[in-house]
Design a protein around this nucleic acid. Structure first.
Lengths: 336, 336
DNA sequence: CTGAAAGCGCTTACAG
DNA sequence: CTGAAAGCGCTTACAG
């Protein structure tokens, strides 16, 4: 049984079949209240019979609103971003918008991808994660398209931002380690010097150490690509530097889980012999023995809020607040 | 410094500024060889000066090719699908296509989301994962849009498919457990009866057991949502059923890692006391002690192949092969 | 190599 | 409540 590929019915076809003008068909979908109930019924029935699907490309061109939101993500593999995208997409779809997705893991790629996206005349743009080149910012600014940066809680580069303070979150959990009585605490971070989001967390950690009068320079930075192995590398390096090391505060749960794996290998009991703090509350945090104490962020809510802000700006021309804070919390398990 | 929101230059503006007809401007971008070098240079320079960005919405409407590919994904949180999407997006962007993304975790959602997508007149559709309702299939069939189903190696529902045999992969790794001398082996699977991709793996496992003359009914199915905990639940249940259980063959690495965590809790050495096989080669497989032996699938390559097949069909009207196999391999570590 | 004309399938004021 | 007209910004044959 082969698919019949006869051309799709147009609005004109439908209008003719229903015995009304195209204008009335258009109103049936866009402004149903402006059409008499009987007429509307007739049109909708004919539409169903014909399998009519309105051409939103033509609609976009005519109305000047594409109802597409471009989302730029450094990596889908990051489960925080995946959650943000889900929160964003769900809200958008319910409002009749579509998501135009592009992955861009470095600035040159981002600029290229952005040009492609801008040609599609998106009604709004969502940037995920913090780092963007001057050129990218300029491209967006010149387009005049509303844009919200997610996972950013202050000073949007262009327009709007939604997120929370990475600094505060890292400081809070580091503080908790201090309150547990630990005195020799290391930081396991990432290597990318340009990444403000990693820098902010490290500074938060160091602030907590300084506040407590402890050493704040037990810092090891692993490449982002090292994954779980980063936790092991950090433990090895920092124990060499400070043999009395009692705990590790990690830039992500992945690193933290890696540190816990290393404790298992060494037969060190957690938290008695060694403590570990995570960041992100990924699924693994709840499952890796003995359970990881970590910062729980609300990626889906960030995505939802981004969608709300964008749609408000698109539809009304302004937003109540160009910057929104989404709360984070600390989930206490048994790793510290 | 406020963004200047003067309306974007159109092709007509650019044509006037460059002293040529719109037609010639169009040719400069689409068929550069049809334009004299000097004219082209002039147009391109003027375009740069004006910050001209071609309106691809208008282009789509006029040409009848939207150059957008709609991708339907059950969940972005699945890192296999994330890889497929990356392989797909990279290839597509290089060819001047854009990705229209929608997440749909159940059939009713899928149908709704599909209608929204179809209105955008995508040039092609990528379905990720195996299960689709009759209505979804029918919607796609009637649209006449080329579609490729990924993570499916045979009998496409509509048009094309690319993936590998889940049955074979599960049978192969189960076979390896048998060759290691294990005689009491359980299957830790998922609960969704409708999910062909889980069923196939289980059947592959059972085939390997039958071939070896072993019990094939040591099966435990955990809800998909149980995550790492599923591995623990499976061990508990199957050990109750068969105290001599020596190993667990798992439907995903997440479950397998959960089983390894449970071994740690019990102080059971792996693989001496208990063996575990995974599926997926997620990042955790390499890191969780003592290293998980697992099936490595090539999600990115599946995405790339899907893009190739789709573009070939879109641009030439047919494909060399409507079904493509992407090889998998078994990665040997120390868990069995 | 270059251009005038028609058209893609809708929506937007504006009349009736 | 309903419709005829113009237009959104491109591309597609077709002439010159």
């Amino acid at each position: 049984m082969k698919a019949e590929r006869r051309p799709r019915a147009t609005m004109a076809d439908l209008a003719a079949a229903a015995g009304v003008s195209p204008m009335t068909v258009s109103n049936c979908f866009k402004h149903p209240d402006k059409v008499q109930a009987a007429t509307r019924k007739k049109v909708l029935e004919t539409a169903a019979a014909l399998g009519y699907v309105p051409n939103l490309i033509a609609s976009s061109l005519a109305s000047g609103n594409s109802r597409m939101i471009a989302a730029l993500v450094p990596s889908l593999r990051n489960s925080n971003y995946a959650r943000t995208l889900k929160g964003l997409g769900d809200h958008l779809h319910n409002r009749g918008y579509e998501l135009l997705l592009a992955e861009a893991d470095h600035p040159a790629r981002e600029e290229k991808v952005l040009r492609g996206l801008l040609g599609r005349r998106p009604a709004g743009i969502v940037m995920t994660g913090g780092e963007h080149s001057e050129l990218s910012i300029e491209l967006i600014r010149q387009s005049g398209v509303p844009v919200v940066e997610t996972w950013r809680h202050a000073r949007p580069s262009v327009d709007m931002a939604v997120g929370f303070s990475l600094f505060d979150a890292a400081r809070d959990i580091a503080h908790m380690m201090v309150r547990k009585g630990l005195r020799h605490i290391g930081w396991a971070g990432h290597d990318e010097p340009a990444s403000e989001r990693y820098v902010q967390r490290q500074l938060g950690f160091q602030q907590a150490m300084s506040d407590a009068g402890l050493r704040a320079d037990l810092v090891f930075l692993a490449p982002e690509s090292s994954g779980f192995a980063g936790g092991r590398l950090a433990m090895e390096a920092l124990l060499r530097q400070e043999p009395r090391l009692q705990g590790l505060c990690c830039v992500t749960d992945v690193m933290a889980a890696g540190a816990l794996f290393e404790c298992m290998r060494r037969g060190w009991s957690v938290p008695e012999r060694f403590s570990v703090a995570g960041y992100g509350d990924y699924e693994i945090a709840a499952e890796v023995p003995p359970g990881l104490t970590t910062v729980k962020t609300n990626g889906a809510e960030i995505g939802r809020a981004a969608a709300e802000m964008l749609l408000q700006k698109i539809e009304t021309g302004h937003v109540e607040s160009a910057v929104r804070q989404i709360p984070y919390e600390i989930v206490i398990r048994h790793s510290l």
